[in-house]
Design a protein around this nucleic acid. Structure first.
Lengths: 255, 255
DNA sequence: TGACAAAATGAGCTTAACTCATTATTACTG
DNA sequence: CAGTAATAATGAGTTAAGCTCATTTTGTCA
């Protein structure tokens, strides 16, 4: 409880002490210590996973006493939570930057897929921290983690919505179907890629390309238009010939 | 170590004592006790999750002493492992039965999707046990869990391969792309369905139908047939025109 | 420099997984 | 049917990891 308060205090930028101003150096030191703890925890989680990481080892790695951890984080879960939140933040930032650079919907989707894949491959142990959190309970909606997830996912949503607006993706009210297919396929694909070590890079590209195409394919203007145009032309020609043939038959008297 | 040996012994059906035969009642009692333990653990995992389940509570629920648990399972993880293996077994059996009853590939895929979804919704806490196992390490390939997963997944694979053979699904060497998309989408979709309580049943159907269509769509014969009919009409017209043109040429004496 | 607040410490508490010496049960035999 | 050896079960005790809190150290003022 005390720790939780402190955690909030050092995270948010509220005025710590009344006089202020010259507290800067102290604050800076405190925050760098918090960073050191998070960094140590991150590394441990990556290396040996959450379950096998001990608080005492994190403390040692961060160069602080075990008790100090609890001044910054109320418990081990809260520490994992922070590590996960940082991960989401980086992920979201990278996604936004990449999308902003690209104009075409297909390119954007391929980028998002590759970006997601590469990051969950590199930091898959961090992603696993998610599975500890109870995503069923009512509490989850409204949690910081839920918001971070929404923020990340909405980058994808925005790309798709704009793609629909432009007519590059078939319109649907059920955006969740596309979203879950996209991210679900990426996470499962990641495991396959990890399992079959060979040709990882190629598989990443394959998966990203396939998913992007799957989304735009449904009513891809390119293919559909070509076929329709070709058929329409043929049919127009046919109609003209039908008329001409009928007239000819009338003249010659037979069929 | 001792416990592990015992676990193996009571699991496998090897001859426990030399004389054999009349051991039946004792074996039966032992196995029913093992069942009681697994059942208790299953229920606890479902109710409060793996982390918050204590061995002492499992023991109490199963009506045995805490130490007895370790005669049957070397540790808590091994117990979770068994619960998970049982889950896979049920899942695989159900999938096989359902597929056998259906002849059409699309129907089979819809069934598999619905079957998977309904089960991972009902027993999602069991599915979470998977995320504890280290699916990266070399050890995983060759593990019992890996084999059970393969057995389950191969039901899907077989359906898809047969669908390809029949020409109902576009052929591809990259079956893993279809597989990961299918199961990944289902798992992510499950979470969305859990989160938005309303209209779960409808969402299940929607997701199952969408995924099945996605797989067969690429070269769905239906669409292709329509096009072919259209083409056939055109060809008929063309033949008629050829005749008419020939006659016209005869009359007009040109070309 | 002294005093006060903020920060840090680590010995000790609590709890849960796991062990093992002891006891109880069962199946077989003379 | 009593004796006995093998098998099964027990729960007090050990270990270890998360967490607490009385005490100490550090930093910043007047």
């Amino acid at each position: 409880m005390t720790a939780a308060k402190k955690q909030a205090k050092s995270k948010a930028g509220n005025g710590v002490t009344a006089p202020g101003v010259r507290t800067a150096t102290r604050r800076a030191r405190v925050e760098s210590k918090e960073d050191a703890i998070v960094k140590a925890a991150y590394q441990m989680f990556i290396d040996v996973g959450f379950a096998k990481t001990t608080m005492s080892e994190i403390a040692k790695k961060a160069g602080v006493a075990e008790g100090t951890l609890y001044l910054y984080f109320s418990n081990k879960d809260a520490l994992a939570h922070t590590v996960l939140a940082d991960f989401y933040e980086r992920l979201t930032l990278g996604a936004k930057k990449g999308v902003a650079k690209l104009g075409n919907t297909e390119e954007r989707l391929v980028f998002l897929a590759r970006h997601h894949l590469k990051n969950i491959i590199k930091e898959r142990r961090i992603l696993e921290l998610l599975s500890m959190t109870d995503r069923d309970s009512e509490i989850y909606r409204g949690s910081e983690l839920y918001k971070m997830n929404r923020a990340y996912v909405s980058v994808f949503d925005d790309v798709v919505r704009e793609g629909m607006w432009r007519g590059e993706i078939k319109k649907t009210d059920e955006l969740w179907l596309l979203r879950d297919t996209f991210f679900g396929a990426l996470e499962y694909g990641m495991r396959t890629i990890m399992l079959k070590r060979r040709g990882a890079e190629q598989r990443v590209n394959q998966l990203a390309q396939t998913l992007a195409e799957m989304l735009i394919q449904n009513t891809k203007p390119a293919g559909a238009t070509e076929n329709q145009t070709s058929l329409q032309n043929l049919e127009k020609t046919a109609r003209r010939f039908e008329k001409a043939a009928t007239r000819l038959e009338r003249i010659t008297g037979q069929m």
